[in-house]
Nucleic acid binder design. Structure first.
Lengths: 190, 190
DNA sequence: TAATGTCACTCACCAACTTAGTAATCTACT
DNA sequence: AGTAGATTACTAAGTTGGTGAGTGACATTA
């Protein structure tokens, strides 16, 4: 794990020297230009020399909400994030617990429990696979489908409207950017 | 909500009919035409009548990766997702446990534990707030900063390179799209 | 000064994951 | 055909990281 820690001043930051503002909230430990400095903090805030553009900060914000939204939506629906994630995937068609586990990034033991809860809430049901006695197919129910749509429809409508405003030329540019960003993030997972 | 699901053939997918592939891994419950199948599944798969564009599917993939990456990266680093999230936020400057809790979307009881673990691993330290005896500031250490940079730098470099290829005109288009998408998702949280 | 609010923290509990192992079934190789 | 090995779904027990409730120290306001 990160043998990187070469020099290490570990504990102490240089010492605040700067007199404290009496301000309540900000806290400002004195490290980097936050409130008063130049407008930007950088895509990696804390490494100010990395230049930032409007598109990059917009991308960063999108990624940030993408991480936040599922947890919030799931909670509102009374589901765990794994359950919501499963439900969304089940919209595409039936799938077995083992494959579902791969989609979720958890063990099959965990996904077995996820399916239990889904079935318990009436959002999905188990069905035995014709032709392979080991397999179980998990199938979304009407209720599960309605739940997902109810939670996500407004977003899809907004997105579709936004998307419709793009010209053909714009599409090429935007899609290339999105796919490039996706690839960059996927690389972190390797 | 979503009276949309008007007709819907609900549960049953047409039935797999297709003979099973002997293949070990894929298992292919008929789910996503990802690599090989017909190009599109629909932004809301399971509601085929919703039209999909290249940009929308690219956006969907980006969002999906954004949800997946943090968990994978955190695990590789031996951190919980909350710890990684905190660390990333701490790059911007010190913050108290209560505010950190708001950022993470958890209770302050939980964030107290997060800070404990961060401090235990040497990634951050507690410092008492000058001027307000109740407050504690959580400050990232050099080691914590190095950890984040080590994990995320390759991504930022790729993104910066990608971003640099945009013309001024492109930027306007892309940024508008990204901000629009962000807004659409944020609305789900309200 | 007293009342009220805020912050960081602890405690008991719980949900959702992990590892380790099971029985049933399928596949491949003699 | 018979059997060894994979694969699937599941269970059991333990761990992790969260919640809700409540505490004491301090700050702010009446």
């Amino acid at each position: 794990m990160s043998d990187i820690s070469s020099k290490q001043t570990v504990g102490q930051q240089p010492a605040p020297s700067r007199a404290r503002r009496s301000k309540g909230a900000a806290a400002d430990g004195g490290q980097h230009a936050r409130a008063d400095g130049p407008p930007e903090v950088g895509l990696v805030p804390g490494v100010p020399e990395w230049r930032t553009t409007g598109t990059l900060t917009a991308l960063q914000e999108l990624v940030e909400v993408s991480e936040t939204v599922p947890a919030v939506v799931a909670r509102k629906a009374g589901l765990s994030t794994s359950e919501l994630h499963s439900l969304r995937h089940l919209m595409r068609g039936p799938i077995g617990p083992v494959d579902l586990a791969k989609v979720l990034g958890v063990t099959s033991a965990a996904s077995s429990g996820v399916v239990d809860r889904l079935v318990g809430h009436g959002h999905a049901e188990r069905r035995s696979h014709p032709g392979d006695g080991r397999r179980t197919e998990v199938v979304i129910t009407e209720r599960g489908r309605a739940e997902v749509l109810a939670r996500m429809t407004p977003m899809f409508e907004s997105l579709a409207a936004l998307d419709a405003t793009l010209s053909e030329g714009d599409r090429v540019v935007v899609e290339r950017y999105l796919r490039g960003a996706t690839a960059a993030m996927k690389n972190l997972m390797t």
